[in-house]
Every structure is written in C-alpha cells, then in structure tokens.
C-alpha cells in the first residue's frame, strides 16, 4: 500500500513553524517511513501530485496568492491543520490590521526609513500578489480541522499530532505539549 502523503506550506508566516517541523530531529527518518511528502518547501515540490492525507498550514492569509494556495490545500487534503499562531489568528502579520492598507504600502515602498525608491513607484508587477485589506486567519477562509497552537508549536507537539493522525489514533496531546506559559 502506498504511503499516505503530507503537504506543507508557509503562507504569511516566518518559516519558524517549518523549522519546528525539522526540529523533530532523527524522527524525520521515521516520518519518511510513515509518509511521503507532496507539495512542500521541504522537498520543493511546487504542485500537488495527488490526494494528501494531511496538510500543514503555517501562516495566515495576507494576499490573494495565500488564499489560492490555502484553497488548493483544502481541495487536496483530507485533514487540514493550522500550524502555529499566525495560521490560527493572523499572528504578527495581523498587527497591520488596524492600519489602513494605503499606509502599509506607503511605509513599505515610499516612506520607510530604509527605503530607497527614487522613482516613487509602488512595485506593480503582475507576479506580485495583491494584498488583502487585512490578514485573515486560515479558518476564516477555508474549513480547518485542527489547530496546533504555539509560536512555533513545539516539535514534539507536531510529531505526536502527525503520528496520531497517520496511524488513525485520536489526537490526545498531553498537557505539557499544549501549555505555553
């Protein structure tokens, strides 16, 4: 029987959650026995090759491309997990949600203290995704099945959750893995 597949992505995140995935250390060898990776920065596969058992989403949605990627994850994955605080509630990127979008663009491309932009143009290449008016947590864009909190969630938490899901066991994380104070 083919191994189940896992896909991962980082939307409006810092890749910290992906670093935490790597923090499972040598257990990654065990994980490779359990699963194949599909679309993911880990193996650099850009497009889904088929149906996936689990999708791990890092980061919320700050632009139109994030939305598209997230929607395709929802389409291709049986179980979708919001991984870490940015996916769950927008996190640091969502700090801009109280600031008008025009000011955000201006600060980034025109007025910021380290900006050098003699042409005074805001970059406008069609390749650059348009920003959403605010940063959305993933579950406001598509249905999310599980939330793994933390900034980032500890490697052990990710490991236990993944193994439980992939071996059809209930995701019952012990208190130590979900307490953050």
């Amino acid at each position: 029987m083919a191994k189940p597949k896992v896909a991962t992505t980082s939307l409006a995140g810092c890749f910290g959650c992906h670093m935490s995935i790597l923090d499972i250390d040598e257990r990654i060898l065990k994980l490779v026995e359990l699963v194949d990776f599909d679309k993911s920065p880990i193996d650099d596969i850009k497009k889904f090759t088929g149906r996936c058992a689990v999708g791990l989403i890092e980061g919320g949605c700050c632009n139109e491309e994030n939305v598209e990627v997230l929607r395709s994850f929802r389409e291709h994955c049986d179980v979708l997990i919001s991984l870490g605080d940015c996916a769950i509630m927008g996190g640091i990127p969502a700090l801009r949600n109280t600031i008008p979008l025009q000011e955000c663009y201006d600060e980034a491309y025109l007025n910021g203290p380290t900006v050098h932009n003699p042409s005074r143009q805001i970059p406008n290449d069609p390749e650059l995704p348009l920003l959403l008016h605010k940063v959305y947590p993933c579950h406001e864009v598509v249905k999310i099945d599980y939330h793994l909190a933390g900034c980032p969630p500890p490697a052990d938490t990710i490991w236990e959750a993944l193994v439980a899901l992939l071996t059809n066991k209930p995701v019952a994380l012990p208190y130590e893995l979900v307490k953050y104070d």
């Binding site: 979008l101 959403l132 008016h133």
Partner: peptide
C-alpha cells in the same frame, strides 16, 4: 478583500 489593493 482585494478591492482596496486593486484601487491602490
């Protein structure tokens, strides 16, 4: 959600 950015 993108309408504002489209205008800007």
């Amino acid at each position: 959600a993108v309408a504002e950015a489209e205008t800007i």
